[in-house]
Amino acid sequence: MSQPRPASDRRAEAPAPRRRRPASLIFEPPEAVADPEHFFDLESMEDPHELLRRSTELALAFRVAADRATEYQAMAAAQLADPRRFDRMPLPALAEQADWSEDYAQKMIEFGRGLLRDGGTHIGDAD
């Protein structure tokens, strides 16, 4: 599924880019997060076949998770921008909160409206 992408010049517009901490992954033990070299025990694997299998498995899982998260972002953006809401969020505020350009925010709103119209049926369809 092709997703809208942020405008490449968005970073040039911003006075100072915000640094976001990556979300912690709930299945990594806390001691693993404290060690910057630790990544799902991949660093301790010696068999390259097993390393390739496991790292590929993780990469695919992260792609699916990223696609699902993007769909949820789009649905939330569509809901927040809904003109029927008394607390509708203006496009510039929505774009700023999500760290998107306004053009990208508009595309995400449209994408989200489509998902909501379809009942969110795209979520989880990658299986």
Rank of each mutant, 00 (worst) to 15 (best):
P29V: 07
A76E: 07
A59G: 06
A74E: 05
S55K: 06
A7S: 15
H122I: 00
R85K: 11
R68V: 00
R20C: 04
D47W: 01
A93R: 08
A81S: 15
M1G: 15
P22D: 06
P4L: 13
E31A: 08
Q3V: 10
L58Q: 08
D9M: 09
M89T: 12
A76T: 05
P6Q: 14
F27H: 15
G124I: 02
A16D: 06
M1E: 15
E43K: 04
L115M: 12
F27W: 14
Y72H: 06
A59L: 09
L94A: 02
A65K: 03
A59W: 06
E13S: 08
A76M: 11
D125Q: 10
P29N: 10
D41R: 08
R84Q: 14
R18Q: 05
Y104A: 13
V64H: 08
P15E: 07
A23N: 14
H122C: 01
D125P: 04
R20E: 10
P15G: 03
P30S: 09
R10W: 08
P90F: 01
A98V: 02
P29Q: 13
A34S: 09
R19I: 13
Q3C: 08
Q79K: 12
Q3P: 04
D127R: 13
Q3H: 15
R88H: 06
R63D: 09
M1R: 15
L91R: 12
E28K: 13
I26H: 12
L115I: 04
Y72S: 00
D125M: 07
S24E: 15
T121D: 11
S44Y: 00
E50D: 09
R21D: 05
I109E: 13
P6D: 15
A69N: 01
R18M: 02
A34T: 05
T56M: 07
R20Q: 11
S8W: 10
S2V: 15
L60A: 07
L25T: 13
E96G: 01
L52M: 08
R5S: 15
A23Q: 14
P29D: 12
E43Y: 00
F39R: 05
A23W: 12
D87C: 01
D118H: 05
F40Q: 00
A59N: 07
R54Y: 11
L58E: 08
A7T: 13
M75D: 03
A98C: 07
A61V: 03
R11G: 02
A76K: 07
R19D: 12
R84N: 11
S55C: 10
E110F: 14
P6A: 13
A12L: 09
G119P: 04
F62W: 06
A23G: 12
D82S: 05
G112S: 09
L58G: 03
F86T: 04
L80W: 09
E37C: 00
A59K: 10
I109P: 13
A76D: 08
R53A: 14
R11D: 08
F62E: 12
A98T: 02
T56F: 10
S101N: 10
A61T: 06
E37Q: 04
W100H: 14
M45D: 01
L94S: 01
Y72D: 00
R117W: 14
M45A: 01
S8Y: 08
R18E: 07
P22Y: 00
A77S: 11
E13D: 10
P83L: 12
S24R: 14
R113S: 03
P48D: 11
D103T: 14
D9K: 13
A12P: 00
M45L: 14
Q79I: 09
